[in-house]
Simulated assay, not measured.
Amino acid sequence: MTELNRRPVASLWIGESLHYLNQLCLKSHLLAGHPTILYCTDDVQNAPDGVEIRPASEIMDIDMSIVDQTSASFLSNVFRYKMIKKTDAIWIDCDAFCHKPFPDEMQNIYAGHGFRGALNCGVVYIPPQGELIDMLLDYYENLPEAPPWFNKNQRRKLEKFSSDPHPVRIYKAERTAFGPQAFTYFAQQTGDYDKALSPDCLYPVPFQLNDVFYDPHGRVEGHFTENTLSVHLYTNGTKPWWRKNVPMEGSYADRMCRQVGIDPSLALK
């Protein structure tokens, strides 16, 4: 194992076991020299050797009733900033593959993704003391009746789900209102939007092309540049077939599993 002498990275897992792509991504950070912490709500037994398992409650209590009404990733949008504030680690989604180590001196690790220009927070580090993280945490801890960027249609949806708990109403009105939408809005308010890295650094392959990771004839590396640090595999957007079957031989997912030392057949959905 590579000596773990770089900045720590951390993520959250809600569930009992990891998929092989999650194993792959976590282990890739270990091999790059990053101490890798996985905060868990359950007793996860199939994390790669070397990943440090900690209870999610060290950072915050996860309200499973909210998770059941939204998604496993919904409250992770709150968790990541609380984690950064408390530990100063870099947040990584469990489907972010480490292409190159994160530079020690880099203080603003986030970028836009896809074709829309919004910032994503799948891989993120912002200074734990600062206006941006304070505004994000205040938003989550003191939810307004409607997020300030909501348009008329989104506000009408809020009214439609008036009987649901407030966080659930916001989720049903707009699934990314706790995630990229909130991060983009508050980064614009604080001036941190302009500090974002270019998409090729963290999201070199656009979300809309996520199936290319499983295509043995897809030129995934053609999207990479010398700036690429992380490769997001977008498991939330992956077709169900790929979650239940090993990747095709020669595909990016297959090649990275061989490179890192992960057997996909042992951790399918």
Rank of each mutant, 00 (worst) to 15 (best):
R116P: 02
N22M: 10
S230R: 02
K172E: 06
S198A: 14
L137K: 10
E52V: 15
Q129G: 02
F161R: 06
Y20A: 05
T87V: 12
M60S: 11
L158C: 02
S28F: 06
V67C: 11
L209E: 09
L143M: 04
G117W: 02
L119Q: 00
Q188H: 13
K27Q: 11
Q188E: 15
N77C: 02
P35L: 13
R175F: 06
E249G: 07
A146P: 02
N151Y: 03
Y110E: 13
K86V: 05
T225D: 01
W91G: 06
A253R: 05
I92F: 11
Q107H: 11
I133A: 06
D254V: 13
N236R: 14
R54S: 10
D192P: 15
V44F: 00
S198G: 12
V124E: 03
K160H: 04
A182R: 07
G218Y: 03
L30S: 06
D43K: 07
I133W: 13
D42S: 03
C121G: 12
A89E: 08
Y140R: 12
P147M: 05
I59M: 09
V231S: 00
V44E: 04
S71M: 05
Q107L: 13
C40N: 03
K82A: 12
E141D: 15
Y140A: 01
K85R: 14
S251Q: 03
F97T: 02
P35F: 05
F97L: 15
R156I: 10
L268K: 11
